[in-house]
Design a protein around this nucleic acid. Structure first.
Lengths: 202, 202
DNA sequence: ACCCTTCCGCAGCGATCGATGCAGAACGTG
DNA sequence: CACGTTCTGCATCGATCGCTGCGGAAGGGT
Protein backbone atom coordinates (compact mmCIF):
# COMPACT_ATOMS: atom_id res chain seq x y z
CA UNK A 1 0.00 0.00 0.00
CA UNK A 2 1.55 3.22 -1.17
CA UNK A 3 -0.74 5.53 0.76
CA UNK A 4 2.30 7.66 1.38
CA UNK A 5 2.28 8.93 -2.19
CA UNK A 6 -1.04 10.73 -2.11
CA UNK A 7 -0.25 13.69 -4.32
CA UNK A 8 0.07 12.60 -7.95
CA UNK A 9 2.60 15.39 -8.34
CA UNK A 10 1.99 18.82 -9.81
CA UNK A 11 3.11 22.35 -9.25
CA UNK A 12 4.49 22.66 -5.75
CA UNK A 13 3.19 25.23 -3.32
CA UNK A 14 4.91 28.56 -3.57
CA UNK A 15 4.78 29.33 0.14
CA UNK A 16 5.37 27.69 3.50
CA UNK A 17 1.96 26.59 4.80
CA UNK A 18 3.27 26.40 8.36
CA UNK A 19 4.58 29.92 8.31
CA UNK A 20 1.40 31.19 6.66
CA UNK A 21 -0.63 29.55 9.41
CA UNK A 22 1.59 31.15 12.03
CA UNK A 23 0.92 34.56 10.50
CA UNK A 24 -2.80 33.89 10.45
CA UNK A 25 -2.63 32.82 14.08
CA UNK A 26 -1.11 36.16 15.02
CA UNK A 27 -3.85 38.06 13.20
CA UNK A 28 -6.64 36.05 14.85
CA UNK A 29 -4.91 36.44 18.18
CA UNK A 30 -4.69 40.20 17.93
CA UNK A 31 -7.92 41.06 16.14
CA UNK A 32 -10.22 38.20 17.02
CA UNK A 33 -12.13 36.02 14.60
CA UNK A 34 -14.64 38.63 13.54
CA UNK A 35 -12.13 41.45 13.49
CA UNK A 36 -9.78 39.53 11.20
CA UNK A 37 -10.93 39.98 7.60
CA UNK A 38 -9.83 37.79 4.76
CA UNK A 39 -7.85 40.73 3.43
CA UNK A 40 -6.08 41.13 6.79
CA UNK A 41 -5.30 37.45 6.92
CA UNK A 42 -4.07 36.92 3.39
CA UNK A 43 -2.01 40.10 3.54
CA UNK A 44 -0.26 38.87 6.66
CA UNK A 45 0.09 35.37 5.24
CA UNK A 46 1.55 36.74 2.04
CA UNK A 47 -0.73 34.68 -0.19
CA UNK A 48 -3.84 35.20 -2.28
CA UNK A 49 -7.32 34.32 -1.17
CA UNK A 50 -7.29 31.57 -3.78
CA UNK A 51 -4.28 29.91 -2.19
CA UNK A 52 -5.74 30.32 1.26
CA UNK A 53 -8.98 28.58 0.31
CA UNK A 54 -7.17 25.85 -1.58
CA UNK A 55 -4.88 25.16 1.38
CA UNK A 56 -7.01 25.73 4.45
CA UNK A 57 -10.63 25.41 3.30
CA UNK A 58 -12.31 28.56 4.54
CA UNK A 59 -12.04 31.17 7.28
CA UNK A 60 -13.49 28.99 10.01
CA UNK A 61 -11.24 26.07 9.09
CA UNK A 62 -8.28 28.40 9.08
CA UNK A 63 -9.25 29.54 12.54
CA UNK A 64 -9.58 25.96 13.71
CA UNK A 65 -6.11 25.13 12.44
CA UNK A 66 -4.69 28.31 13.94
CA UNK A 67 -6.20 27.32 17.28
CA UNK A 68 -4.57 23.90 17.02
CA UNK A 69 -1.25 25.57 16.35
CA UNK A 70 -1.87 27.87 19.29
CA UNK A 71 -2.57 24.90 21.55
CA UNK A 72 0.64 23.16 20.56
CA UNK A 73 2.70 26.34 20.54
CA UNK A 74 2.01 29.33 22.78
CA UNK A 75 -0.43 27.39 24.92
CA UNK A 76 1.65 24.23 25.25
CA UNK A 77 2.58 25.27 28.77
CA UNK A 78 -0.74 23.82 29.92
CA UNK A 79 0.16 20.25 28.94
CA UNK A 80 3.57 20.63 30.57
CA UNK A 81 2.05 22.14 33.70
CA UNK A 82 -0.16 19.09 34.19
CA UNK A 83 2.98 16.97 34.52
CA UNK A 84 4.14 18.84 37.60
CA UNK A 85 4.29 16.52 40.59
CA UNK A 86 2.01 18.52 42.87
CA UNK A 87 -1.23 20.44 42.52
CA UNK A 88 0.56 23.56 43.72
CA UNK A 89 3.20 23.00 41.08
CA UNK A 90 0.49 22.60 38.45
CA UNK A 91 -1.21 25.83 39.46
CA UNK A 92 2.10 27.67 39.65
CA UNK A 93 3.11 26.51 36.18
CA UNK A 94 -0.27 27.37 34.70
CA UNK A 95 -0.17 30.90 36.04
CA UNK A 96 3.43 31.41 34.99
CA UNK A 97 2.70 30.11 31.51
CA UNK A 98 -0.42 32.21 31.20
CA UNK A 99 1.37 35.37 32.27
CA UNK A 100 4.28 34.72 29.92
CA UNK A 101 2.12 33.86 26.93
CA UNK A 102 -0.36 36.68 27.34
CA UNK A 103 2.28 39.38 27.78
CA UNK A 104 4.90 38.53 25.19
CA UNK A 105 6.86 41.70 24.39
CA UNK A 106 6.65 40.70 20.75
CA UNK A 107 3.27 39.47 19.64
CA UNK A 108 -0.34 40.00 20.66
CA UNK A 109 -1.36 40.43 24.27
CA UNK A 110 -4.00 38.23 25.81
CA UNK A 111 -5.12 34.68 25.06
CA UNK A 112 -6.48 33.54 21.72
CA UNK A 113 -8.76 31.07 23.48
CA UNK A 114 -10.43 33.94 25.31
CA UNK A 115 -10.39 36.93 23.00
CA UNK A 116 -10.56 35.05 19.71
CA UNK A 117 -14.34 34.85 19.78
CA UNK A 118 -15.91 35.50 23.17
CA UNK A 119 -19.16 37.13 22.05
CA UNK A 120 -20.05 36.98 18.37
CA UNK A 121 -22.80 37.40 15.85
CA UNK A 122 -24.68 34.47 14.39
CA UNK A 123 -22.35 34.04 11.44
CA UNK A 124 -19.37 33.43 13.74
CA UNK A 125 -21.05 31.05 16.13
CA UNK A 126 -18.87 28.24 14.84
CA UNK A 127 -15.71 29.94 16.02
CA UNK A 128 -17.35 30.90 19.28
CA UNK A 129 -18.45 27.34 20.01
CA UNK A 130 -15.00 26.12 19.10
CA UNK A 131 -13.44 28.31 21.77
CA UNK A 132 -16.06 27.34 24.33
CA UNK A 133 -15.08 23.73 23.73
CA UNK A 134 -11.39 24.65 23.87
CA UNK A 135 -11.76 26.35 27.23
CA UNK A 136 -13.90 23.53 28.56
CA UNK A 137 -11.26 21.04 27.51
CA UNK A 138 -8.61 22.95 29.43
CA UNK A 139 -10.81 23.10 32.49
CA UNK A 140 -11.54 19.37 32.33
CA UNK A 141 -7.89 18.42 32.09
CA UNK A 142 -7.06 20.55 35.10
CA UNK A 143 -9.94 19.10 37.07
CA UNK A 144 -8.86 15.55 36.26
CA UNK A 145 -5.34 16.40 37.32
CA UNK A 146 -6.62 17.70 40.66
CA UNK A 147 -8.74 14.58 41.10
CA UNK A 148 -5.57 12.59 40.75
CA UNK A 149 -3.90 14.88 43.28
CA UNK A 150 -6.63 14.02 45.76
CA UNK A 151 -6.18 10.33 45.07
CA UNK A 152 -2.43 10.74 45.55
CA UNK A 153 -2.92 12.44 48.89
CA UNK A 154 -1.29 15.56 47.48
CA UNK A 155 -4.51 17.48 48.02
CA UNK A 156 -6.59 16.81 51.14
CA UNK A 157 -9.52 14.40 50.71
CA UNK A 158 -12.03 17.16 51.33
CA UNK A 159 -10.63 19.26 48.49
CA UNK A 160 -13.00 19.89 45.59
CA UNK A 161 -11.12 19.31 42.31
CA UNK A 162 -13.86 20.82 40.14
CA UNK A 163 -13.97 23.95 42.25
CA UNK A 164 -10.20 24.26 42.30
CA UNK A 165 -10.07 23.86 38.54
CA UNK A 166 -12.67 26.62 38.17
CA UNK A 167 -10.55 28.82 40.39
CA UNK A 168 -7.36 28.24 38.44
CA UNK A 169 -9.02 28.74 35.08
CA UNK A 170 -10.85 31.83 36.28
CA UNK A 171 -7.66 33.44 37.47
CA UNK A 172 -5.90 32.47 34.25
CA UNK A 173 -8.69 33.99 32.12
CA UNK A 174 -8.63 37.06 34.31
CA UNK A 175 -4.92 37.37 33.70
CA UNK A 176 -5.56 37.06 29.98
CA UNK A 177 -8.18 39.82 30.00
CA UNK A 178 -5.93 42.15 31.91
CA UNK A 179 -3.03 41.36 29.60
CA UNK A 180 -5.26 42.30 26.68
CA UNK A 181 -5.85 45.61 28.43
CA UNK A 182 -2.13 46.25 28.56
CA UNK A 183 -1.31 45.33 32.16
CA UNK A 184 2.37 44.50 32.54
CA UNK A 185 3.86 41.06 32.88
CA UNK A 186 5.47 41.82 36.25
CA UNK A 187 2.28 43.10 37.77
CA UNK A 188 0.32 40.05 36.70
CA UNK A 189 3.03 37.66 37.88
CA UNK A 190 3.14 39.36 41.27
CA UNK A 191 -0.61 38.95 41.54
CA UNK A 192 -0.41 35.28 40.61
CA UNK A 193 2.37 34.73 43.16
CA UNK A 194 0.22 36.29 45.85
CA UNK A 195 -2.73 34.09 44.94
CA UNK A 196 -0.55 31.01 45.13
CA UNK A 197 0.57 31.85 48.64
CA UNK A 198 -2.85 30.77 49.92
CA UNK A 199 -3.08 27.59 47.89
CA UNK A 200 -5.34 25.70 47.99
CA UNK A 201 -8.15 28.24 48.50
CA UNK A 202 -10.50 26.20 50.64
CA UNK B 1 -32.77 82.00 30.73
CA UNK B 2 -35.06 79.58 29.01
CA UNK B 3 -32.48 76.85 28.37
CA UNK B 4 -35.13 74.40 29.38
CA UNK B 5 -37.06 74.84 26.16
CA UNK B 6 -34.41 73.61 23.75
CA UNK B 7 -36.62 71.86 21.25
CA UNK B 8 -38.57 74.42 19.18
CA UNK B 9 -41.33 71.84 18.86
CA UNK B 10 -41.88 69.44 15.98
CA UNK B 11 -42.93 65.89 15.41
CA UNK B 12 -42.34 63.91 18.61
CA UNK B 13 -40.31 60.74 18.64
CA UNK B 14 -42.36 57.64 17.91
CA UNK B 15 -40.45 55.36 20.26
CA UNK B 16 -38.99 55.26 23.76
CA UNK B 17 -35.30 56.10 23.44
CA UNK B 18 -34.54 54.52 26.81
CA UNK B 19 -36.14 51.23 25.90
CA UNK B 20 -34.47 51.27 22.50
CA UNK B 21 -31.11 51.78 24.19
CA UNK B 22 -31.85 48.90 26.55
CA UNK B 23 -32.54 46.64 23.58
CA UNK B 24 -29.33 47.75 21.92
CA UNK B 25 -27.44 47.05 25.15
CA UNK B 26 -28.69 43.48 25.14
CA UNK B 27 -27.57 42.96 21.55
CA UNK B 28 -24.10 44.38 22.19
CA UNK B 29 -23.87 42.32 25.36
CA UNK B 30 -24.68 39.07 23.62
CA UNK B 31 -23.00 39.52 20.26
CA UNK B 32 -20.22 41.98 20.99
CA UNK B 33 -19.56 45.26 19.20
CA UNK B 34 -18.34 43.73 15.96
CA UNK B 35 -20.87 40.91 15.98
CA UNK B 36 -23.78 43.32 16.36
CA UNK B 37 -24.74 44.65 12.95
CA UNK B 38 -26.84 47.72 12.38
CA UNK B 39 -29.60 45.43 11.14
CA UNK B 40 -29.42 43.35 14.34
CA UNK B 41 -29.50 46.46 16.47
CA UNK B 42 -32.30 48.33 14.73
CA UNK B 43 -34.40 45.17 14.51
CA UNK B 44 -34.10 44.66 18.26
CA UNK B 45 -34.65 48.35 18.93
CA UNK B 46 -37.74 48.37 16.75
CA UNK B 47 -36.67 51.46 14.84
CA UNK B 48 -35.21 52.31 11.46
CA UNK B 49 -31.57 53.08 10.85
CA UNK B 50 -32.58 56.65 10.13
CA UNK B 51 -34.10 57.04 13.60
CA UNK B 52 -31.12 55.36 15.20
CA UNK B 53 -28.65 57.73 13.59
CA UNK B 54 -30.80 60.75 14.34
CA UNK B 55 -31.11 59.79 18.01
CA UNK B 56 -27.77 58.19 18.91
CA UNK B 57 -25.29 59.44 16.32
CA UNK B 58 -23.62 56.33 15.01
CA UNK B 59 -22.79 52.77 16.01
CA UNK B 60 -19.86 53.70 18.22
CA UNK B 61 -21.85 56.38 20.00
CA UNK B 62 -24.68 53.93 20.50
CA UNK B 63 -22.21 51.51 22.04
CA UNK B 64 -20.84 54.22 24.30
CA UNK B 65 -24.33 55.06 25.53
CA UNK B 66 -25.17 51.38 25.97
CA UNK B 67 -22.03 50.99 28.07
CA UNK B 68 -23.08 53.91 30.23
CA UNK B 69 -26.45 52.28 30.73
CA UNK B 70 -24.72 49.03 31.55
CA UNK B 71 -22.56 50.74 34.17
CA UNK B 72 -25.55 52.29 35.87
CA UNK B 73 -27.72 49.20 35.52
CA UNK B 74 -26.39 45.65 35.46
CA UNK B 75 -22.95 46.74 36.62
CA UNK B 76 -24.11 49.10 39.35
CA UNK B 77 -23.21 46.48 41.94
CA UNK B 78 -19.62 47.70 41.72
CA UNK B 79 -20.41 51.16 43.05
CA UNK B 80 -22.49 49.64 45.83
CA UNK B 81 -19.79 47.12 46.65
CA UNK B 82 -17.26 49.87 47.23
CA UNK B 83 -19.46 51.18 50.04
CA UNK B 84 -19.09 48.00 52.05
CA UNK B 85 -17.37 48.69 55.36
CA UNK B 86 -14.51 46.22 54.97
CA UNK B 87 -12.23 45.09 52.16
CA UNK B 88 -13.53 41.58 52.59
CA UNK B 89 -17.07 42.89 52.26
CA UNK B 90 -16.08 44.78 49.14
CA UNK B 91 -14.55 41.70 47.53
CA UNK B 92 -17.49 39.56 48.56
CA UNK B 93 -19.99 42.00 47.08
CA UNK B 94 -18.02 42.36 43.86
CA UNK B 95 -17.88 38.62 43.32
CA UNK B 96 -21.54 38.16 44.20
CA UNK B 97 -22.55 40.97 41.85
CA UNK B 98 -20.35 39.65 39.07
CA UNK B 99 -21.75 36.14 39.37
CA UNK B 100 -25.30 37.38 39.46
CA UNK B 101 -24.93 39.77 36.53
CA UNK B 102 -23.00 37.41 34.30
CA UNK B 103 -25.38 34.48 34.78
CA UNK B 104 -28.80 36.03 34.64
CA UNK B 105 -31.29 33.33 33.66
CA UNK B 106 -32.86 35.83 31.33
CA UNK B 107 -30.45 37.88 29.31
CA UNK B 108 -26.92 37.46 27.95
CA UNK B 109 -24.26 35.59 29.87
CA UNK B 110 -20.94 37.22 30.62
CA UNK B 111 -19.90 40.85 31.06
CA UNK B 112 -20.33 43.53 28.42
CA UNK B 113 -17.16 45.24 29.63
CA UNK B 114 -15.19 42.10 28.84
CA UNK B 115 -16.81 40.47 25.84
CA UNK B 116 -18.11 43.63 24.20
CA UNK B 117 -14.86 44.26 22.36
CA UNK B 118 -11.85 42.39 23.74
CA UNK B 119 -9.93 41.88 20.50
CA UNK B 120 -11.07 43.77 17.42
CA UNK B 121 -10.10 44.88 13.96
CA UNK B 122 -8.88 48.36 13.22
CA UNK B 123 -12.32 49.73 12.46
CA UNK B 124 -13.56 48.86 15.95
CA UNK B 125 -10.58 50.13 17.88
CA UNK B 126 -12.72 52.91 19.31
CA UNK B 127 -15.01 50.46 21.08
CA UNK B 128 -12.05 48.38 22.18
CA UNK B 129 -10.28 51.35 23.71
CA UNK B 130 -13.50 52.38 25.39
CA UNK B 131 -13.72 49.04 27.18
CA UNK B 132 -10.05 49.11 28.12
CA UNK B 133 -10.70 52.45 29.81
CA UNK B 134 -13.86 51.07 31.39
CA UNK B 135 -12.05 48.13 32.91
CA UNK B 136 -9.17 50.31 34.03
CA UNK B 137 -11.62 52.62 35.74
CA UNK B 138 -13.11 49.72 37.66
CA UNK B 139 -9.68 48.53 38.70
CA UNK B 140 -8.65 51.98 39.87
CA UNK B 141 -11.74 52.43 41.99
CA UNK B 142 -11.16 49.10 43.69
CA UNK B 143 -7.50 49.89 44.26
CA UNK B 144 -8.36 53.24 45.82
CA UNK B 145 -10.90 51.53 48.03
CA UNK B 146 -8.27 49.07 49.23
CA UNK B 147 -5.82 51.91 49.86
CA UNK B 148 -8.43 53.39 52.13
CA UNK B 149 -8.83 50.01 53.82
CA UNK B 150 -5.13 50.02 54.61
CA UNK B 151 -5.38 53.53 56.00
CA UNK B 152 -8.35 52.46 58.09
CA UNK B 153 -6.44 49.52 59.52
CA UNK B 154 -8.96 47.19 57.94
CA UNK B 155 -6.21 45.68 55.80
CA UNK B 156 -2.73 45.14 57.31
CA UNK B 157 -0.16 47.85 56.55
CA UNK B 158 1.90 45.47 54.46
CA UNK B 159 -1.04 44.71 52.17
CA UNK B 160 -0.62 45.77 48.57
CA UNK B 161 -3.82 47.50 47.40
CA UNK B 162 -2.83 47.51 43.73
CA UNK B 163 -2.07 43.81 43.81
CA UNK B 164 -5.27 43.02 45.67
CA UNK B 165 -7.26 45.04 43.16
CA UNK B 166 -5.63 43.12 40.31
CA UNK B 167 -6.58 39.90 42.04
CA UNK B 168 -10.20 40.86 42.53
CA UNK B 169 -10.61 42.14 39.00
CA UNK B 170 -8.85 39.11 37.54
CA UNK B 171 -11.15 36.74 39.35
CA UNK B 172 -14.17 38.80 38.35
CA UNK B 173 -13.13 38.78 34.68
CA UNK B 174 -12.46 35.08 34.93
CA UNK B 175 -15.95 34.57 36.27
CA UNK B 176 -17.29 36.60 33.35
CA UNK B 177 -15.43 34.51 30.79
CA UNK B 178 -16.66 31.28 32.31
CA UNK B 179 -20.18 32.61 32.48
CA UNK B 180 -19.95 33.39 28.78
CA UNK B 181 -19.00 29.75 28.28
CA UNK B 182 -22.16 28.63 30.00
CA UNK B 183 -20.86 27.71 33.45
CA UNK B 184 -23.66 27.80 36.01
CA UNK B 185 -24.28 30.48 38.58
CA UNK B 186 -23.99 28.10 41.52
CA UNK B 187 -20.68 26.70 40.41
CA UNK B 188 -19.18 30.15 39.98
CA UNK B 189 -20.54 31.37 43.30
CA UNK B 190 -19.10 28.34 45.08
CA UNK B 191 -15.74 29.08 43.54
CA UNK B 192 -15.89 32.72 44.59
CA UNK B 193 -16.84 31.69 48.11
CA UNK B 194 -13.84 29.39 48.28
CA UNK B 195 -11.52 32.14 47.06
CA UNK B 196 -12.86 34.50 49.70
CA UNK B 197 -12.09 32.03 52.46
CA UNK B 198 -8.39 32.87 52.11
CA UNK B 199 -8.84 36.62 51.95
CA UNK B 200 -6.61 38.54 51.69
CA UNK B 201 -4.34 36.47 49.47
CA UNK B 202 -0.93 37.62 50.72
C1' DA C 1 10.31 16.65 -24.34
C1' DC C 2 5.74 15.62 -23.35
C1' DC C 3 1.75 15.37 -20.43
C1' DC C 4 -0.80 15.54 -16.36
C1' DT C 5 -1.56 17.67 -12.12
C1' DT C 6 -1.50 21.26 -9.03
C1' DC C 7 -1.09 26.00 -7.87
C1' DC C 8 -1.60 30.97 -8.55
C1' DG C 9 -3.19 35.87 -10.33
C1' DC C 10 -6.98 38.22 -11.84
C1' DA C 11 -11.43 39.42 -11.77
C1' DG C 12 -15.64 39.37 -9.93
C1' DC C 13 -19.64 37.02 -7.47
C1' DG C 14 -23.94 38.12 -4.33
C1' DA C 15 -24.51 39.67 0.24
C1' DT C 16 -23.91 42.62 3.90
C1' DC C 17 -21.39 46.32 6.13
C1' DG C 18 -22.15 51.22 8.29
C1' DA C 19 -24.18 55.33 6.94
C1' DT C 20 -27.32 59.06 4.14
C1' DG C 21 -30.54 61.97 1.01
C1' DC C 22 -34.86 62.98 0.26
C1' DA C 23 -39.64 63.69 0.54
C1' DG C 24 -43.62 63.32 3.08
C1' DA C 25 -45.91 62.49 7.58
C1' DA C 26 -46.89 64.09 12.29
C1' DC C 27 -46.82 66.98 15.79
C1' DG C 28 -46.80 71.92 18.78
C1' DT C 29 -47.49 76.68 18.09
C1' DG C 30 -49.40 80.91 16.31
C1' DC D 1 -56.03 76.25 9.74
C1' DA D 2 -51.36 77.39 8.26
C1' DC D 3 -46.70 77.32 9.56
C1' DG D 4 -42.26 75.72 11.14
C1' DT D 5 -39.91 71.94 12.94
C1' DT D 6 -38.82 67.39 13.79
C1' DC D 7 -39.15 62.63 12.85
C1' DT D 8 -39.80 58.54 9.80
C1' DG D 9 -40.00 55.22 5.54
C1' DC D 10 -37.97 54.23 1.44
C1' DA D 11 -34.35 53.77 -1.35
C1' DT D 12 -29.70 53.59 -1.90
C1' DC D 13 -24.85 54.89 -1.38
C1' DG D 14 -19.74 53.16 -1.81
C1' DA D 15 -17.02 49.91 0.65
C1' DT D 16 -16.08 45.67 2.34
C1' DC D 17 -17.54 41.04 3.59
C1' DG D 18 -16.36 35.86 2.61
C1' DC D 19 -15.82 33.26 -1.35
C1' DT D 20 -15.21 31.30 -6.25
C1' DG D 21 -14.44 30.48 -11.77
C1' DC D 22 -11.27 30.59 -14.98
C1' DG D 23 -7.17 30.37 -17.62
C1' DG D 24 -2.41 30.34 -17.64
C1' DA D 25 1.96 29.30 -15.08
C1' DA D 26 4.99 25.94 -12.96
C1' DG D 27 6.38 22.07 -11.58
C1' DG D 28 7.23 16.31 -11.40
C1' DG D 29 6.86 11.70 -13.64
C1' DT D 30 7.79 8.97 -17.60
Amino acid sequence: METKQRRPTGRPRGFDADEALERALLVFWEQGYEGASLANLTDAMGISTTSMYATFGNKEELFRKALERYTEGPSAYLARALDEPTALGVATAIFAGTVRTTTRPTGPHGCLGVQGALATGDSSRGARDLLVAWRDSGYSRIRERFERAVDDGDLPPEANPALLARYVTALAYGIAVQAASGVSRDELQDMADAALRTWPPC
